[in-house]
Amino acid sequence: MAEPAFSLRTSDRLRRRQLVSRAMGAVAVGAALLAVAVLAIVVISVAHRGAGALNLDFFTQSQAQGFNPNGGGVLFAIVGSAVLVGIATLIALPLGVLVAIFISELAPPHLARIARMALDITNGIPTIVIGIFVFTMLMAIHGQQSAIAGSLALAIIMLPLVARATEEVLLLVPSSLREASLALGVSRWRTTLQVVVPSALGGILTGTTLAIARAAGETAPLLFLTSLGVSSHADANPFHPLQSLTLVIFTYFDVPALQTKAWAAAFVLMCFVLFTSLAAKLALARYRKKLGG
């Protein structure tokens, strides 16, 4: 039998291509590992450094007044954070969803473009600027610091995140569903409310969770809106200035004796964010299961 005129063995060119391919694959895996490693290192070192202060008292006591080297617990910082972020979410979520509905369902294309750009710019404003702005505007009227003012600043930070995430999922809702509802003689608004938004609930929830995580971690806009002049460390009234986890980290870290507690508070904050996103995922999974889709 004659030798065939071609070879099916690996040629040099192919060997080189395979090498490049393998190298690029390795780089990609490395980058992924690095990302996970950074997270792991941060979580582990925060937990490790804060571990000494993580006991029952830390969670059940309020902060000590003045410069007590003991420092006390973070109960009301947790409560304050929850109040601040909770009120901010109550403002930003409905507003953000409405803005998204305007952009994706109602606005003519050129207005939608302008609104989208405005949101992106808002998203880019440094949070300290938002803090100063709310401080000047609100203090002038209200005359005193309050958690509400802090929540307002956080809501401004959350709004573009919620709106943009929602808008993107609204665009993914198939137009055949809108048609189905409109063809039944249902108005556009009812269709949006009853068909489009529920179909996009998953994305809205994800966007809101991200925004909550972002707001919970904000310090800058809170500094002069709710932290300066905190008179009581055991308060949950949103009309008073309240403590928050980020502010506790900020103030404790300055005092060498309280640094362990600052780490512990940081750990609590991370868990807060983690639980929020887990809860949202769980709620979503349950909702999806109900729909069977």
Partner: peptide, 10 residues
């Protein structure tokens, strides 16, 4: 109206 692709609501 009934459409080309079945479009039940979720």
């Amino acid at each position: 109206m009934v459409f080309q692709k079945p479009n039940p609501f979720p």
